[in-house]
């Protein structure tokens, strides 16, 4: 016997009213990051000892720029989700917890946007 209402069951959002959205997004970005991480490592190899002109030339390749953008977006989103879980697990003071989660959310947005801007600027010629 279930004590949940039929409506609650069909909505599937659970006690936190969030459902499995966080879990799903974490896994989706994780799957995306498996190939993207290998690409990123190759990109780093190509940038070893590179000067600015080489960085511009490399990012000028649309494939490189787009895959870097995907890596950045998936990576920072994955980071936001993961850091939020770490904070929620270990910080028990409600105010500090909320402030930390906000800081992670805004911080990952800010850093992610900065990285996206940098890649686009390089891609369009530095």
């Amino acid at each position: 016997m279930s004590l949940r209402t039929p409506l609650g069951r069909v909505r599937g959002l659970g006690a936190a009213r969030e459902g499995t959205g966080h879990f799903w997004a974490q896994r989706l970005t994780a799957v995306a990051l498996v190939p993207l991480t290998f690409f990123f490592v190759v990109f780093v190899f190509l940038m070893i000892g590179a000067d600015h002109a080489r960085a511009v030339a490399l990012m000028g390749n649309p494939l490189v720029a787009v895959i870097m953008l995907l890596f950045i977006v998936a990576g920072f989103y994955h980071m936001k989700l993961g850091m939020q879980v770490v904070i929620e697990d270990y910080i028990h003071h409600e105010g500090i917890k909320t402030a930390s989660v906000l800081l992670v959310l805004l911080g990952s947005f800010a850093l992610g946007t900065a990285c996206v801007f940098a890649v686009l600027k390089l891609a369009f010629g530095g």
Binding site: A55, F76, M83, C115, F117, G126
Partner: peptide, 17 residues
């Protein structure tokens, strides 16, 4: 997550010049 600070610094520096 800490490493993303270094990554951002690197990319932004490249964008600066």
């Amino acid at each position: 997550a800490v490493g993303t600070l270094f990554l951002t610094w690197w990319l932004i520096a490249a964008a600066i010049g």
